[in-house]
Amino acid sequence: MSELTGKERVQKLFKKEPLDTMPCFSGQGAVVVQAIEEMGTQFAKIHTDARLMAQSAITSARLFNMDGVVIPYDMATVAEAMGRGISLYENADGVIYPTVPNKWKTLDEIDIPKDYMSQGRLPMIDEAFKIIKEEAPDLAVGAWVLGPFTLAGQIMELDILLKGLKKNKDATAAFLDQVTQVTVDMVKHYQELDVDFISVRDMGSGTDLLSPRMWKTLVGPNLKKVFDAITCVPSVNHICGSTDMIIEMMHECGADALSVDQKNNVVTTREKLGNDVLLFGNFDPYNTLTQLEDVKEVEAVIKQCIDNGLDAVWPGCDIWPDIRKENMETYVKTVKEYGKKASPAVGRI
């Protein structure tokens, strides 16, 4: 049998069908500076141009033999489309992610425009998906959206939102409902673009900020609505930071796979959830790919992830674009070689 393409490998993974080896891909940003340099462009430019976005995603995957790509790279796109502005840091040197400059300050000010889907960079991102699908049909294409709670924190001041959860419960819950609808519309839209998977990242909702009790009432039910809306492509529920106390509730939200970062105790999580659940994660991207100076240590980190019982080795967060080339190569190589053995939820050919 001929080797599987990256796309096939990822598709089979989500169906829990036997694989030749573990796919190497991510649901968080995986663009790297080596690709940006090769293209002769700059980090600040790849967020606003469909061709540069598509090309930087494809080139990053090709350079390191990854099985898939994921766009966009920043978490400000929807807030921007709602008129909250965008800071791109075009004149700063080095890598700085776009941020939202004008968040709404109070619940009363919030006025989500009806036509946000056609505003800001959202149409450009659709175009980038089209280019990727045409030019790299062998790669798995991932879309991602912010989960409702984190999106809410992107369009209004997070501290006011957090306090509102306790002080102004009803109005805050109503706002979260409204934002959930936006997330639902976004995932339905990406589903129509026929991507290979959708990752929902509610990264601001871990127990670094919220109590498990709040998560249960204000985050979980909304995430469930989002996963209920994703009916025809595989979905991933990703939360970074502390997730040990909420992992079972995350599972109940109904995604096809769960993804966690280095703070999660994966061995315990696996025991709690059983072997049938697709579980991704959980290495510290900055430390592993940018800091470690010996590739042997990188190899050890990745092997540990696999031995702990993950079905795909995902970075816990965006890959910091300024990676060390050798570290990235070792990450991919280790996944492909050491990942030849079956993982808990997925067998091998």
Partner: peptide
């Protein structure tokens, strides 16, 4: 000790 989370801390600060 995980008794309070960030929302509580912010309200205490207020």
């Amino acid at each position: 000790t995980n008794e309070y989370f960030v929302p509580e801390v912010l309200m205490c600060a207020d």
